[in-house]
Design a protein around this nucleic acid. Structure first.
Lengths: 201, 201, 201, 201
DNA sequence: TATGAATGAGCATTCATTCAT
DNA sequence: AATGAATGAATGCTCATTCAT
């Protein structure tokens, strides 16, 4: 069902259910996120979720799309606004961590889905591709720095893995230690990867 | 039951079951790792696992301990053998990635457990502490570099998160792309974090 | 609600819903004939069906009545128009199979209902009585042949069961094999039961 | 799992579950035959059925196989023992109806499955092919009569449909009227189809 | 020690029905 | 008269765990 053909009330329900799914995912983890629990959180019956989304898979997809949209809207403009690749990398790291600060629960929900969603037979889950896309996008940013002569020579894929790895490690820390100093980490990551990528004198 | 009081045959059974659990975890993923599947792999009955380990949780714990021991045995001596902190950091990264190469299945099994094992109420899973320990250990290495004046000033915790994040990202890449060039990545990570930590001229 | 008190528009809605129910039953089978599917076919909401018919059972009843009326209107005059019981039997078989040819979907819908509609406690379904009526009606035709001395002696009920059984087997064949030669079968059935019932020399 | 590799106790459980499934099918009809009901009948837990059969479909298959074996064992030797096709046809009808008398519940269960088991999208169910096989087998018997010159000329497929239709109508009658005179019906069907198939003088 | 049959709670999903709008 | 969102019971299935043999 295309979004345009949905009624206002339907759209509201969908939004409510997605929000509750995010809440439950972030609070209780993927394994404990059952239809019944989401329904209870939304104070509705389980059938409503199937009614609006068709099934758990489609609800999951909707949550992923929702968070991806949230992240893209926040980050992409900030990165593209930078005049140099180095500034772009700084904006990339900063906007990623800002997103974690401002949309902590949606992010945790997304992480739960990406890491815990089981694939067909032990292979990568259906959303593991998201990470691949993230790596590739980051490589483009690094390529920019190479072409502009701002960065030293390095394998872009390896560097992209390192940077994304460092960023992706943050939600886990955040989960374990809610009083985490995100500002400090942001500054340090920016410094670290600025140094690591710039031309060495 | 303390290890000393176990008979030889019992110890052998435990080892066999742990090995099969690792095999299944690495091949089929956490979600598809059922007691029945492990039992089938070991060509025994499901009851045997409960009999020897008490339950799935304790088997999981045994697997984690086994792999942790494997990793520690491989890595710690190599790191401690280095004369400088910078060489220690290089050895840390190299030995971590060597471990992934040489003990791929145990590592994948460990990753499956750490990322997929559900926490009781959405909080950190029971093995998230492992990561905390890993971070703290790495911080000690970085402290060494600070005290020895080899490293520039940085927040050790943030740097540790970045380095471990980069390393922890590798198994995921390995899972998605088995033909991954681990040697190249190793060299690049060593270079990147050597540059990122050394005193800047 | 008695038919007389229904408005014209109400009657039209009922007819539309019955037609759509027949369509869905014939195309998708009893098990896949849900209220939602009928509503979708009719391009209305599910509530309308409940509104007009009260529930699924009553809709089913209405479908049965509709098809029964269709069949009766086609067959009864043709049978009664025959001068002899033998001709009547021929007309009976021919008109039955003609009905299958000309009103295939309504017939299939009826068959779906009669065979698949669950009885309350394993006993005969609520429409099994229809078959009983059909048998009894056919017995009257055979009685006519007996009284007129046209037919040999046989148990009318047994013969009626045989004839109806042969006829009722046709929809199943039709469903499995749409290219079925209905004309050939009609001729053969007429011949078979003409021989089987006539006085033997 | 091949039958040989099953333990005695497993075989007994399987037999018990199949028997209970037949009981429930015959008593309550396909629609009311749920795993829970079968389990309750067998005074076991629902999981046991899944444990021994894998799922409802495989249990159904096992029931069909069981009844088919029962029927084949009873009927085939009797038919093949006849010296002429006419005697074979008599034996066919008699053994079919004898089977209904002696194994009423298994037969009713089979009928429930064949008629009610839903196909993928309204098409014929997975066991509708059974009927096709029955028709084809019967055609072979009629062919024998043709080749031997015992029978008059007729389309074997049409006659087979008529005979099987008459036979298949019996369970329904039996269901509606348990006091049904099966002996009378057997004699009448034999007479009817003997007359209908023999060379006409 | 080891077996494997049995349990029972938990899961997603379907669907006829109801009812405020 | 019609809508369509919501309900809630029922179903088949999975799986860690238990226990008599």
């Amino acid at each position: 069902m295309p979004p345009e053909s949905r009624t206002f009330i339907e759209e509201a329900r969908r939004a409510q259910i997605i929000e509750c799914a995010i809440e439950v995912l972030a609070e209780h983890g993927y394994a404990h996120t059952t239809m019944a629990r989401i329904a209870k959180q939304a104070k509705i019956s389980t059938g409503v979720i199937s009614y609006h989304f068709g099934g758990k898979d489609q609800l999951t997809q909707a949550v992923v799309a929702e968070v991806a949209k949230l992240a893209t809207d926040l980050m992409v403009p900030r990165i593209l606004a930078q005049p140099t690749a180095a500034e772009g990398l700084r904006a990339y790291i900063e906007s990623n961590l800002d997103f974690m600060r401002e949309h902590r629960k949606p992010l945790l929900a997304l992480v739960e889905i990406i890491t815990h969603m089981p694939g067909e037979a032990g292979g990568p889950g259906p959303y593991a591709g998201q990470e691949e896309v993230a790596i590739t996008d980051l490589e483009k940013l690094l390529d920019w720095g190479h072409k502009a002569g701002e960065f030293r020579e390095f394998d872009t894929r390896s560097m992209a893995i390192a940077i994304r790895g460092a960023i992706d490690a943050v939600p886990g820390r955040l989960l374990n230690n809610p009083d985490f100093d995100l500002d400090l980490l942001t500054r340090e990551l920016v410094t670290t990867f600025t140094i690591a990528t710039r031309r060495q004198s």
